[in-house]
Design a protein around this nucleic acid. Structure first.
Lengths: 224, 224
DNA sequence: GTCTATAGTGGGATAGAC
DNA sequence: GTCTATCCCACTATAGAC
């Protein structure tokens, strides 16, 4: 199913000329939010990068919150599309491990090197006003559900142990990835390598095989 | 070794009476920062919770940044102490998996339910002014190195595969845990259960044992 | 040590010329 | 559609009484 771009759902996109300027503003905002956080970014910061005066912004957007809303929404839309595309491009018969690696690589690529919108989303979502968060949360939920289905398929296909809580697995995986926005600096390590490492650890574990034997013993020996 | 509390290293702790008020202010600030973020928290918010007027804060602290600095620093000091204590309380001969679970449980406990300081740290560190971050980063580095040593010991003891990149493992683990500050709500799932799940996945992997066979084959079969 | 009052400022948003 | 000028408010921080 062709997912329609969220794109410009604003009040005033009639004129094609202003659409370009709008984009410049959003690009500038996404970058600035991602680098400095929401509150620390001023309208004038955005305007300067977009090569205009502060007041001019308000021809295109109603408020700073409005800009934030759109940046955050595009941020999720972009990762979501990239991940769906990466996974969808694989042969349907592919092993789960390959699908997972494709998804993880796509997510990390958008977050860490391709999309200021996505990294802005991950970095400033928590700082956003309640109303803005509320709307963005819908997109986040849909994206989260996509991951849920991916993992669930993997489990049904026998690639994930039946006793693993998929909710926890998903949050652990997305958490590990998203936190990379905090520490990753290009040059440390290629994104694709990071993705491989993450998938390896999550699927195979960092421990030796012998550890597996202990795992189903729920009742730990009481500390005497 | 008894690690001395960082406690009050401020200019004006001579009088025992004001030390209590200072604490009230810090507690209020930690909670507010953790809930609303740094910029969105006003001096008056803090003052109200601490049951005083905004202006009075400045008898105890030089600036808002000053309060933030102390909150952030205490935040790391607290998790660090808790984790060190939890691991240190185990018999030295304990299995690595037990040490890991103790450490993970302690970290998550402080972050998710015991310390507003720790959760404030994780949530607002990125929003802090450069100077504040710079100082706090020293504590974070020491804490990170502690985890590095813990994992490194585990690897030397044979509990972690030799081909696992410990740097990545550490960041994945701390990332997964810290991100929980974003989604965890008490009642969803007990912290200790979450900790067990995380350790299980990270050590044993979410996949089936058969996956292990594939893992050292770097050259994936080319998709035909 | 805490209060009230206020100085000072930064920055979001609007008005109106061009 | 962009500019300049400015309004206006929120908030940090200070001053001085008590």
């Amino acid at each position: 199913m062709s997912q329609q771009e969220v794109s410009t759902r604003s009040r005033r996109t009639s004129h094609p000329k202003s659409a370009i300027t709008r984009q410049r503003i959003l690009d500038a905002a996404a970058r600035a939010f991602s680098l400095k956080g929401y509150a620390a970014t001023t309208i004038n910061d955005i305007a300067m990068t977009a090569e205009m005066q502060g007041g001019s912004i308000y021809y295109h957007f109603e408020s700073k919150d409005d800009i934030l809303q759109e940046v955050l929404d595009v941020g999720i839309t972009r990762v979501f599309s990239a991940v769906r595309l990466a996974v969808g491009s694989l042969p349907a018969s592919s092993a789960f491990s390959e699908k997972l690696e494709a998804a993880v690589t796509a997510h990390l690529t958008m977050l860490l090197q391709q999309s200021d919108y996505t990294s802005a989303n991950i970095r400033v979502f928590e700082q956003a006003p309640a109303a803005v968060k509320r709307q963005n949360r819908k997109l986040r939920a849909a994206y989260g559900e996509y991951w849920g289905r991916l993992l669930s398929e993997g489990q049904r296909a026998g690639a994930i142990r039946r006793d693993v809580d998929l909710m926890v697995l998903r949050l652990l995986l997305l958490g590990a990835m998203n936190w990379a926005a905090t520490w990753y600096r290009p040059g440390d390590l290629a994104v694709s390598e990071l993705a491989q490492n993450v998938c390896d650890i999550v699927l195979n574990g960092a421990g030796l095989d012998s550890n597996h034997l202990e795992r189903s013993s729920k009742g730990r020996r009481a500390r005497s």
